[in-house]
Design a protein around this nucleic acid. Structure first.
Length: 618
RNA sequence: GCCGACGUAGCUCAAUCGGCGGAGCAUCCGCCUUGUAAGCGGAGGGUCGUGGGUUCGAUUCCCACCGUCGGCUCCA
């Protein structure tokens, strides 16, 4: 399915200025056993101690280490401020410097209840540990044992581990970051607590590096870049979470869509188009209305019928399937659609392009026989990997989610589907994790997560079996035996949604897109007005060669024009002055700052086309 | 949806402890005609998020709403 000479991105370098992310990335078991884990856990206790000194009547909840630091949740008499944070941090440094011992002690339930008599959250934890064998993080333990850690005046219910003494914590490698609200036990029906996030490292240099990394994350924030680069906007007066694609963003999206369609044709998919709205019947039949009515846009009434804007494409594809009596001979069917759907996401969760209310899924449904699922699973996985790699994502991991307790569909079908997925993962030598029982009620799935240039994980692809809808819509095909059979159906979105994928691309490339994606691939920069005519000739030649090109004919000086093009991250700046006019050439400057010198126009075109063809980064 | 912070020109951000609102960049006009990241000068531009309230007077104080941001919950 994948062409032998499929373009592969070049290794990342040059223009991205990627500092290798040297932050430690440990596997979760390694992390739990690491000094860093103990440092962070202990820093959380010290923070709690400092907070309780400030608010003796304060109640403490839980305070675990997390990926890049730690947090602690509090129930306090008043709202914390930024100034409080600084004070707490200062006090933490003093406490750390006072060389506190962390003393472990196992206690009886009675002791625990006495010790934490005025700490209702701790009492609840004690109760849970004893009654349900679940520790403060909800993890099950075989032999519930209460334990505490004492450090100075502060004692916390905790299983540890911790540092032996606070001198193992470098006071200058600890920093408090922000205050946020968080529900007690993550339950939206329970009290809202105040959470303080902090970070801690072994050495001050590591803290510095982490803060630099955060700075880089901030610089790459797609919400900033889509504005600066004139790609996409949002309009509160027209509805939050709804993206407007400007010309520069739209041409990129078109490039992505065209590439996606081309690949799908090569992959033997067919395309379908379906409506944006449909009667309630569709969602009643699929079963989604019961579950997701609240997150669907309210229905509109037409001829006394409820119509909904579609939150998904599958029922529409199923209706197309059911227009004919289907034979096993025509399976598998692979029907793809860039289907725009709307979901009424809660206001607090919207986040630039990464979480929107209207988005376009790169959706497809694969309908096949039981005999075909093995090969189809492998095929779709391979297909997805090749697509993701074509966009420059090389680090890809798989997550297999299997049958949950409550599930529809015959266990044998689940079994078969799961095994097919697992074999596909192995055939592709993917690093993977299995989430036992983590599948949706209607079928097992593989998710693919990529790592971006900053080492952050993003889930893009999802490949999901569905044992629910074929049943509910009574999909059938006639088998070799002349009998009706239930087909297997697989939903899959490879990029996820175009909006979200685009946002991730923006952050991954920090706006400096590879030439094939760049909205403006080249900008011709005449040095003086007398060069504008030649510049336009160059522009016309490039456009004829299908390059996306503009001429900067403003009266600004060349330096200003270059700066402008740099800021817009245009890959090729083509400076033309007397010499170039004379020679029929362009002086090529790359956005990395590298100067290729003067090239004949035809040579530049060849160079640019090669970069586009190869999906090269510079 | 929940907790908190924030919302001033196209953008980034000042200011007014209640008394006719400012800068840089951008835009427009003019001069300059330029060799690899900002040439110079001038002009225009704001219902101070929206709606109420308090007040002689509100951008400033109070309330509600909308939106954004940091999280939490959620994500077919």
């Amino acid at each position: 399915m994948e062409p032998r000479n499929a373009p592969r991105p070049k290794r990342m370098r040059g223009v991205l200025h990627l500092r290798r992310c040297r932050m430690k990335t440990l596997s979760s078991e390694d992390y739990h056993a690491s000094p860093l884990y103990r440092i962070r856990h202990s820093a959380a206790h010290i923070m709690a101690a400092a907070v309780l000194e400030m608010f003796p009547e304060g109640k403490v909840a839980i305070g675990p280490p997390i990926e890049h630091g730690f947090y602690y949740d509090f129930d306090l008499p008043r709202q914390l401020t930024q100034e409080d944070l600084e004070k707490i941090e200062g006090r933490m440094r003093e406490l750390i410097a006072s060389r506190l011992d962390f003393q472990y002690q196992e206690i009886t339930p009675e002791e625990g209840q006495a010790l934490f008599a005025d700490q209702p959250y701790k009492l609840e934890l004690i109760h849970d540990i004893l009654e349900r064998g679940a520790d403060e993080y909800g993890e099950k333990t075989e032999h519930p044992q209460l334990s505490i850690y004492k450090s100075g005046a502060f004692t916390d219910l905790c299983r540890g581990p911790h540092v032996q003494n606070s001198r193992e914590i470098h006071p200058k490698a600890v920093k408090l970051l922000n205050i946020a609200g968080a529900y007690w036990r993550g339950d939206s029906d329970r009290p809202m607590l105040q959470r303080i996030y902090g970070t801690a490292w072994e050495k001050p240099e590591e803290l510095r590096e982490y803060l630099d990394w955060m700075e880089e994350v901030k610089k790459r924030d797609h919400r900033r870049l889509i504005k600066d680069l004139d790609l996409v906007s949002f309009h509160e007066e027209a509805g939050p979470g709804l993206a407007y694609w400007h010309p520069r963003g739209a041409i990129m999206r078109k490039t992505i869509e065209d590439f996606w369609r081309e690949r799908h044709l090569e992959g033997d998919y067919d395309f379908v188009y379906t409506p944006h709205i449909g009667k309630a019947w569709l969602w009643e039949t699929s079963g989604h209305l019961d579950f997701y009515r609240d997150s669907m846009y309210a229905p509109m009434e037409i001829d006394e019928q409820e119509y909904f804007i579609k939150p998904m494409n599958c029922p529409f594809h199923i209706l197309i399937y059911k227009t004919q009596l289907r034979s096993y001979r025509e399976l598998p069917l692979r029907w793809a659609e860039l289907g725009t759907v709307y979901r009424f996401e809660k206001s607090g969760v919207l986040h630039g392009l990464l979480r929107v209310r209207g988005f376009t899924q790169d959706d497809a449904h694969i309908i096949c026989t039981p005999e075909q699922i093995e090969s189809e699973a492998l095929r779709v996985l391979r297909f997805s990997l090749s697509l993701l790699r074509a966009f420059g994502f090389e680090q890809i991991e798989a997550y297999l989610s299997t049958r949950p307790e409550k599930a529809v569909g015959e266990p044998a079908r689940w079994e078969q589907a799961q095994e097919s997925l697992l074999r596909a993962i192995n055939a592709e030598n993917l690093v993977y994790q299995v989430d036992e029982g983590g599948g949706a009620f209607y079928g097992p799935k593989i998710d693919l997560k990529i790592k971006d240039a900053l080492g952050r994980e993003w889930q893009l692809t999802t490949i999901q079996f569905d044992f629910n809808e074929p049943e509910r819509f009574d999909m059938t095909y006639v088998g070799e035996d002349g009998q009706e059979h239930r087909p297997y159906m697989v939903h899959r979105a490879l990029l996820g949604s175009l909006e979200r994928f685009f946002g991730i691309l923006v952050e991954h490339y920090a706006g400096a897109f590879p030439v094939w994606l760049a909205p403006e691939q080249a900008r011709v920069i005449p040095i003086a007005d007398r060069h504008v005519e030649y510049a336009r000739q160059v522009e016309a030649q490039l456009r004829k060669a299908h390059l996306r090109v503009k001429t900067d004919d403003s009266s600004a000086r060349m330096n200003a024009k270059i700066r402008e093009a740099q800021l817009m991250k245009v890959p090729y700046m083509l400076v033309v002055g007397d010499q170039e006019v004379e020679a029929g050439a362009v002086a090529v400057r790359l956005r990395s700052g590298n100067n290729l010198g003067a090239l004949p126009v035809a040579d530049f075109i060849t160079l640019a086309q090669k970069a586009i063809e190869e999906h090269a980064l510079e």
